[in-house]
């Protein structure tokens, strides 16, 4: 069983492109095209595709406002983009492709963006000296521990998404292979047992779990950015 991403194109100098990169670009292009298409020829009184687009954008803004408060509303575009990119990447299993987020490179890149945003917000709120002082609370010897805590956040965030999606991929693959073996043992001409029986597993791992994991990923991102905004309000 091959569980890693497959190499699609290999150049002479050792650089290669995996199907993670290909489908990541495809998902991004699909999202861009959907966004551009649904905002074409906008009217004052919305109809058709504009209603859906407005509902989605409003939902994202309301969620960000409810979680991050009015000061964090500037993060709404990033949070919305992150949510839909992770959602669509997780759901690629529905089309028989390997989910983009079943590659630790993708999830760690996303978590690294979040990490940079958190540190940027902290620097904006406290300044460099203030951040150092805040990390030396309540005792100065806690400083190394706080650094480890900050650094471990992107690792745990990326591994959470990666592990959940990869687990789904492995379970689905094992189920399909097992059913194919079973139909071979029953002397069926084609693997007929693969047809309907895996549907509940597909529903769980390709619809329910992607929505849940995308929600959790964006939710934790929002919570950790908010922590850097909220403590500032208490001081002033």
């Amino acid at each position: 069983m091959h569980i890693g991403p497959q190499i699609v194109i290999k150049f002479d100098n050792g650089i290669f492109i995996t199907n993670t990169v290909c489908f990541g670009i495809i998902v991004a292009v699909i999202l861009i095209v959907l966004a551009l298409w649904s905002t074409r020829r906008m009217k004052k009184v919305p109809d058709g595709k504009q209603v859906i687009a407005e509902t989605v954008v409003e939902g994202v803004y309301n969620m960000v406002k409810a979680t991050m408060g009015p000061k964090g509303i500037n993060y709404a575009p990033y949070i919305g983009t992150l949510f839909f990119f992770v959602l669509f990447s997780n759901m690629l299993g529905l089309f028989g492709q390997r989910p983009v987020t079943a590659d630790v490179n993708t999830t760690f890149a996303l978590a690294a963006i979040t990490f940079v945003l958190i540190q940027r917000q902290a620097l904006k709120s406290y300044g460099l000296i203030g951040k150092m002082k805040e990390m030396a609370q309540p005792y100065p010897f806690m400083f190394p521990l706080k650094i480890i805590e900050q650094l471990s956040f992107p690792i745990s965030l990326s591994f959470r998404l990666f592990g959940n999606i990869l687990g789904g991929v492995i379970v689905i693959e094992m189920l399909l292979e097992g059913l194919a073996t079973a139909s071979e043992a029953l002397h069926l001409p084609i693997p007929l047992l693969d047809a309907v029986i895996p549907l509940p597993a597909n529903f769980f791992f390709d619809i329910f779990e992607p929505v849940l994991q995308a929600f959790i990923f964006t939710m934790l991102t929002m919570v950790f950015i908010t922590m850097e905004i909220a403590t500032r309000d208490e001081e002033h």
């Binding site: 591994f159 959470r160 990666f162 959940n164 990869l166 492995i170 959790i216 939710m219 934790l220 919570v223």
Partner: peptide
């Protein structure tokens, strides 16, 4: 919402164990 986020944080140790197994 709070329950799901809390459970996701709880799950982290399990995900690390899963990666060790993989």
């Amino acid at each position: 919402q709070v329950m799901l986020v809390g459970q996701a944080v709880t799950e982290t140790t399990g995900i690390f164990a899963f990666i060790v197994s993989i």
